[in-house]
Design a binder for these strands. Structure first.
Lengths: 220, 220
DNA sequence: ACAAAATCTTAAGCTTTTCTTAACCATTTT
DNA sequence: AAAATGGTTAAGAAAAGCTTAAGATTTTGT
């Protein structure tokens, strides 16, 4: 039985989420503000669902403080918040409101699974011979390593988290431009290309594969 | 088994901390005011967790009086206390409330480890050829040395303590401006620049490296 | 308490890194 | 074959970092 802390001040949304989660056998802890929410740490929270627009303490502060609990940010895409990019280095995932029930549950599962694996060696995401250091943004393979930029890191992290399945282009685009609407796939193409070039410095093996019309995935 | 003295007047926070520490096998001594806390020195306290807003004696006084025990200050960032800067020369570290459990434990470990090492070779933080005297704030390399200012020292100390990993800008900013909100990265840049200039007086080798978009670290 | 010295912050201009745009070609789908 | 998607590259724009200097603030010495 997993404990999930829901930090959301809008009562309707809060209750909706709570209902969804409890139906899936999660134990839900409620918080309606940022300051309040941190006291709940002693409850062995396994995951935090965090609304960005909080009264009192703002969401970004919460993310800074909470270190070893996965955080999924709930963000209203319409709300202009150019700093969300920054948040992504701290938060583990995010979902835009209005969100889809199944997507929410799927992402929760991913994060819970990840954090179970992370317990031991934390700080690193691995796939085959590839290691991504979540702290330094360093991507390494055996003795070689390259440094990823903020955006490259966000993309790579997402691909690694979902390794095995496809990550859609629109999902990746959200990581880059959460506040723009003009889905610029061109930019994404370039980032992927740059990541590939960096991986080529480490090995000749292909690691990132395109899935036509859908998105990208880690090669099997 | 290490003894930790918790000086905190808010009973909820106090108990929360106590619970966290005892779960980690620390022996906890309680104090709910500043005056009271000084009586406990005879207990062979290894570390003090100190809330700044104390009834009676204020936190700064406590720091002045306690000499050879590491002190970690708990400070509410929102609370305006313009003299907190001064504290940093006396306190060994600090954490802003609301704080994160793992961060708290990590910082405690660092301080305990440091103070154990200090027993022997006293008072110096080393990295490669660089030596930072924690008492005089003197930074030296071989026969040359320079004097750091309070802020430069706080930054350098943080980088040295975490040498090997990145220290985020926001963490470093907290060291400078604990009571202002206008996260002024410019100021930080200038301090880093000044530190670098001083190191340049000692050697041509680069010691501080920027990690784009994240913060700074000691060069590998 | 006052003046001098040291330190810190602000602001500007410059450099470097990163991101986006756009062009061009290859591959896949219709 | 045409249209759409993917890949690479290069150039310009934007963002982040570096340094310097001047003004503000704090500390220190008398």
């Amino acid at each position: 039985m997993k404990n999930i802390l829901v930090v959301e001040d809008d009562i309707d949304i809060h209750n909706l989420i709570k209902e969804i989660l409890e139906k899936e056998q999660y134990k839900v802890f409620d918080s309606y503000s940022g300051t309040e929410c941190l006291l709940l740490e002693k409850e062995k929270i396994d995951l935090i669902l965090l609304d960005l627009m909080l009264p009192g303490l703002n969401g970004e502060e919460v993310i800074k403080r909470v270190k070893n609990i996965p955080i999924i940010v709930l963000s209203a895409k319409s709300s202009y918040d150019s700093k969300v990019n920054v948040l992504l280095s701290g938060a583990n995932d995010y979902i835009t409101k209005p969100f889809n029930k199944d997507e929410l549950l799927a992402r929760i599962k991913v994060q819970l699974r990840l954090s179970e694996n992370k317990m031991e060696d934390s700080l690193e995401l691995k796939y085959k011979d590839l290691n991504l250091n979540l702290d330094t943004r360093n991507l390494s393979l055996k003795d070689k390593s390259v440094q990823l930029t903020k955006t490259e890191f966000a993309i790579m992290k997402q691909l690694l988290i979902n390794s095995g399945s496809v990550v859609t282009k629109s999902r990746l685009l959200d990581l880059i431009n959460i506040d723009t609407e003009d889905c610029d796939e061109n930019s994404l193409k370039v980032h992927i290309s740059n990541i590939r070039r960096k991986i080529r410095k480490l090995t000749d093996v292909e690691y990132i594969e395109a899935v036509w019309g859908i998105g990208f995935k880690m090669c099997d």
